[in-house]
Simulated assay, not measured.
Amino acid sequence: MLVTLTDVGHRFDGRPFLFEHLTVRLDPGRVYALTGPSGSGKSTLLGMLAGWIAPSAGSIDRTDVDSIGWIFQNPHGVPRRTALDHVALPFIARGESRFTADTEAQQLLLRFGLKHAMDRQFRALSGGEGQRLMLARGIAAAPDLLLVDEPTAQLDVHTASTVSDALANIATAGTIIVVATHDARTRDACTDIIDLGAIS
């Protein structure tokens, strides 16, 4: 699978282009940091990658991309469900037994530094723990394309650093991951950088 952007640009009616002439190939197993100043079109480009917004110029081709996941700025979960429940659910939805789902979920929670919070209800998690849980659940869902929108925007510096550290562990062979961010530490945790500020 892959996503190819060819000479892509976007603007809203009557406004200058946010960015233009963006040509890039997105491959599975990579984590792309989508950077640029406020107003450069990071969230807009995520919407375009998801197919929600049509580019004003150029084309976006999704080859063998059948499922798309999205992780928002603010983590959303079921208040009384445990962290383990949240990550096990995608495995159960794919037909895994509860035992297998829990085992897989435990491995992901460990990978994202959440072993200590495994049996904690979502409502009892800190902001950083909640956002790392969303990353773990996003990987558990195994989408072809995973879009992450400003994962540290609502967090203090220390908490944001724990999420950025977790992003260093997010790369997975079967998923293309794009992370919109203004945070240098988050950017540096990714494998590749797409700087909209450099092409706007």
Rank of each mutant, 00 (worst) to 15 (best):
M1P: 04
T4D: 09
T6L: 03
T6P: 01
T6K: 09
V8F: 15
G9A: 04
H10K: 04
R11P: 06
R11F: 13
R15F: 05
R15T: 07
P16E: 12
F17C: 02
F17E: 14
L22I: 09
V24I: 07
R25L: 02
R25Q: 14
R25G: 05
L26S: 03
D27L: 10
R30I: 04
L34K: 03
G36A: 07
P37C: 09
K42N: 00
L45D: 11
G47I: 09
G47K: 13
L49M: 02
L49V: 02
L49D: 10
A50S: 05
I53E: 14
A54P: 01
S56V: 00
A57Y: 11
G58L: 04
S59F: 14
S59Y: 05
R62G: 06
D64S: 08
D64Y: 15
I68G: 01
I68H: 07
I68R: 00
I68N: 06
G69V: 04
G69Y: 08
Q73N: 12
N74C: 02
N74I: 10
G77Q: 06
V78Q: 09
R80K: 03
A83N: 00
L84N: 09
L84S: 13
D85N: 02
D85M: 01
D85E: 13
V87M: 06
A88T: 12
F91W: 13
I92F: 13
G95R: 09
S97A: 03
S97W: 11
S97Q: 08
F99G: 15
T100N: 14
A101N: 06
D102E: 15
D102C: 15
T103F: 11
E104H: 06
Q107F: 14
L109I: 08
L110C: 02
R111A: 13
G113K: 02
K115M: 08
M118L: 09
D119T: 05
R120S: 00
Q121N: 08
Q121C: 04
R123L: 03
R123M: 05
A124R: 14
S126G: 06
G127Q: 04
G128M: 00
E129H: 13
Q131N: 03
R132M: 01
L133P: 00
M134Q: 07
M134C: 13
L135S: 01
A136T: 02
R137I: 03
R137A: 07
I139C: 02
A142P: 06
A142R: 15
P143A: 10
E150L: 03
E150G: 01
V157M: 12
V157R: 03
V163L: 06
D165I: 08
A166F: 10
L167T: 07
L167Y: 10
A168P: 00
A168F: 08
A168G: 07
N169W: 00
N169P: 00
T172G: 10
A173Q: 14
A173K: 13
A173G: 13
A173R: 08
T175Q: 11
I176N: 06
I176G: 13
V178L: 05
V178P: 05
V178R: 11
V179A: 08
V179M: 05
V179W: 10
D183I: 01
A184K: 04
T186D: 02
R187E: 15
R187Y: 06
D188Q: 12
A189L: 12
C190K: 06
I193D: 15
I193F: 12
I194C: 10
L196G: 04
G197Y: 01
I199T: 11
I199H: 10
I199E: 14
S200I: 05
